[in-house]
Design a protein around this nucleic acid. Structure first.
Lengths: 185, 185
DNA sequence: CGCGAGTGAGAACGCTCGTTCTCCCCGCGT
DNA sequence: ACGCGGGGAGAACGAGCGTTCTCACTCGCG
């Protein structure tokens, strides 16, 4: 098994376990078992668990945002593209094993103790915010109003995770539509 | 030192440490040192760390919601009372050591592994949601629109924590005001 | 004054974890 | 055929955890 394959196996196994059960709750030995790699190889690829965690989060960031963008790109009009974000969230929330935002979870668990984890989480949220802001501007709305759409999405993620239902995505989408239309409710 | 005093000391010390550094990152011995109690006394008050965690979260829930309600009660009109929520959030975010919602953090860290923690978090969010919903209804808005105000608040909490600035509270408050007014932006 | 119940300090225990080390085997070059 | 370097399996190590135990002490009561 070559280097890139091994790296991918390690990241896939670790990411899934970390997300499913929390980072501190899964040991390196379990990642070894799930990835099919030896402990020695694992430590050859990543010098420490902390480095592996960082790499997992970075991989997840690019994959997550690519999936969102791919979904949004199916919609032609700027308005629909912005609202499609909330549809995609609903799809995400409905996936089995959904357990909230991995970055928020990692931040809560390790942010105080490992600043590099807090950094990755902050960068992910900045990137998501910038993406939504671009959609808002493309829809002809002022950039200053973009925060509202971001906050609705973030609130939906947290609420869906804790409550265990995908419904907040629709509530957020409705609120976003009301804001876009400028109609009271 | 009597029982109630000891219980309060334990809860105060544990809550602060758990919030500041994460739950798994602080050991029982550190709680013993910070509370001034002996390990034996600590285990006499709470049968396990998990029970102490639960008790901390429950104490925090009532205190947190009481602080919010006390602030909101300074405002006379229903509209101002609803918007006061976001002012209070800004105050909270500005406190030194603010590190997001303790319940979300605990959910991310332990929710998958300790269902009782997930339950406490869910109940806290339900109670907060019910409170905001009551404010929305009192302001003469339809109950179905309440989710938007809750999601804005939840999004502000997460975003303020990860970004490290209290600003999202104002952005959420502005969006809430726009929704209330029904004016586009 | 004497005694026993309860307390505090902290050692002890059993376990788990991250990380490293040992040992063995396999495949390759000559 | 034969050594040898690298990789796999897993033992080993040191630290830290939650929890319990020991033991000396104190304080209230007869």
């Amino acid at each position: 098994m070559d280097l890139a394959q091994a790296r991918a196996a390690a990241l896939d196994a670790a990411e899934e376990l970390f997300y499913e059960r929390g980072i501190q709750a899964v040991g390196m030995d379990e990642i070894r078992a799930a990835s099919g790699l030896s402990l020695k190889r694992l430590y050859g690829l990543f010098p420490s668990k902390s480095a592996l965690v960082r790499a997992c989060l970075e991989a997840r960031d690019t994959r997550w945002r690519a999936r969102l963008a791919a979904y949004v790109d199916n919609y032609p009009t700027p308005r629909d593209r912005l609202l499609a974000v909330y549809d995609w969230l609903h799809q995400w929330f409905s996936e089995p094993g959904f357990r909230g935002c991995a970055f928020v979870n990692a931040f809560g668990e390790l942010g105080a103790v490992d600043p590099s984890v807090a950094d990755v989480a902050r960068r992910h949220k900045e990137a998501f915010g910038a993406y939504v802001t671009a959609l808002v501007v493309a829809a002809g709305r002022p950039e200053e109003s973009a925060a509202a759409y971001v906050l609705l999405a973030e609130g939906a993620i947290v609420t869906a995770a804790v409550s265990g239902t995908p419904d907040p995505a629709h509530r957020a989408g409705e609120a976003a539509a009301r804001l876009l239309a400028g109609v009271s409710g």
